[in-house]
Design a protein around this nucleic acid. Structure first.
Lengths: 245, 245
DNA sequence: GCAAAAGTGTTGTCCTTACACCCATGC
DNA sequence: GCATGGGTGTAAGGACAACACTTTTGC
């Protein structure tokens, strides 16, 4: 008992200078904004909602909210996803902080951009309050705040990362055809790819599981369906060394 | 006059809902921490300083400071560099936010990690207050706060980025030998590279300017010195497309 | 049978890797 | 003349890019 109490007192003394130090720092409001990508009808989509603010009336914005007291940053981003889409277990990663002093009309607000990838089919968007909906990435003209800049930065991040990591599978149904996979890459990267080379590439990686099922209800020869072999990928991660610029 | 005044009133009305919204947000102290890498005697170094806090006495920490009211985030990072090293025009990039609620003993503090690369020779470290000095990256055991984690994250960031962009030249003198360049890559990546292939690689890139000077005061055949052709690099940037994971 | 997309192989080029000997300098 | 690191070439293998025809299905 006494030992415990002594330890408490000792640690109180140790942090006695830390608390006033932190109290002396300026404080700013902190938010999280999620750039949530989806893929449907061969189009890259982003989940957006109408802004509440008068100055941005009729403009759309990213899904965001302030970070609560003592809430972890990643938790805040997952909370927003959960509140807006009802989904857990969604891919999400911190991308960058945006903190220009004038980026918010109500005063200084720092925001942390998160990029999220989700499978539209797995999640029926029930709530459409404030015009919450999926919008075609390439058709979005402008957004509230600096959200267009944030969205474009996250798109660049996605373009880079989808080439180095198997992120794309988060946007597809469990079962997908090679054509869908290629369409996804083409939509995100804004290029067209050679079909044979694309298929060869994925065949040689040996990370797709042939489930012996075929597309249904297509008016042409149906394609085979595959699943992604997440386990094998996790085991085989390699460290790449090379110099290329 | 009246038109201007009407506009002012109109814009006041437009932001009238934005200001109370922002005022309603929780506020947190925000700091910037710089992981400043240098390279000397074929060793990767980091600039560290003794922590002020009692709880961390005898521990080293990164160079950091709070972000001032209305100070841009990048500006804050440059300010810290300038105050501590006297240097401007140094490579610096935002890497990630660290915001675990308990990462600071004095209460919640969010910090933005910046990675900076600087040429130790260009900057004589005059001030050594609080044991401000260069420390060997690989010999650092532990640091105050979560700074070890931040430092290691930035090292990973550097490893990745030095392979894709010519960042390494920020750590070298204007004139350098191929051996120094290779030592730099080996120190950062923690690998050994084949000398002939390394030289061929850089020769084929054609981004090194042969300045027809040689090393001095070495006890062996002196190596040629080169400069990096920043202009040519800037012009020739290409967009890479490929799938590799 | 026609439209629409699936599926499939080869070749040339380039990049990467592995590897061993002679050269210039200081001492 | 010896120790130290500088400087160089080649051959094999693997990855990537370009390119055209046959197959299956729905209508």
């Amino acid at each position: 008992m006494n030992i415990k109490r002594d330890q408490d007192i000792a640690s109180q003394q140790l942090i006695q200078d830390a608390v006033p130090l932190v109290l002396s720092y300026p404080k700013v409001p902190l938010t999280v904004d999620c750039v949530i990508f989806g893929f449907e009808e061969n189009k890259l989509k982003v989940l957006l909602i109408k802004s509440d603010l008068k100055i941005y009336k009729n403009k759309l914005s990213l899904l965001g909210d302030f970070v609560k007291d003592n809430e972890d940053l990643d938790d805040a981003a997952y909370r927003i996803l959960k509140e807006r889409t009802g989904m857990n277990n969604v891919f999400l990663d911190q991308v960058r902080v945006f903190g220009k002093p004038d980026r918010h009309p109500g005063g200084r607000v720092i925001t942390i951009a998160y990029c999220s990838l989700l499978n539209i089919q797995h999640h029926a968007l029930n709530i459409h309050d404030h015009e919450l909906d999926w919008y075609n990435y390439h058709a979005i003209k402008d957004l509230a705040f600096d959200h267009k800049e944030i969205m474009e930065y996250c798109h660049g991040w996605l373009q880079k990362n989808i080439q180095e990591h198997p992120l794309g599978f988060n946007l597809l149904p469990d079962k997908f055809s090679l054509r869908e996979l290629q369409n996804l890459y083409e939509a995100i990267l804004g290029v067209t790819l050679d079909r044979r080379n694309f298929r060869k590439k994925f065949a040689s990686m040996d990370l797709l599981i042939d489930i012996n099922e075929y597309e249904q209800d297509v008016s042409h020869r149906p394609g085979k369906l595959y699943k992604f072999n997440f386990e094998k990928y996790e085991k085989g991660k390699r460290k790449w060394v090379g110099i290329d610029f």
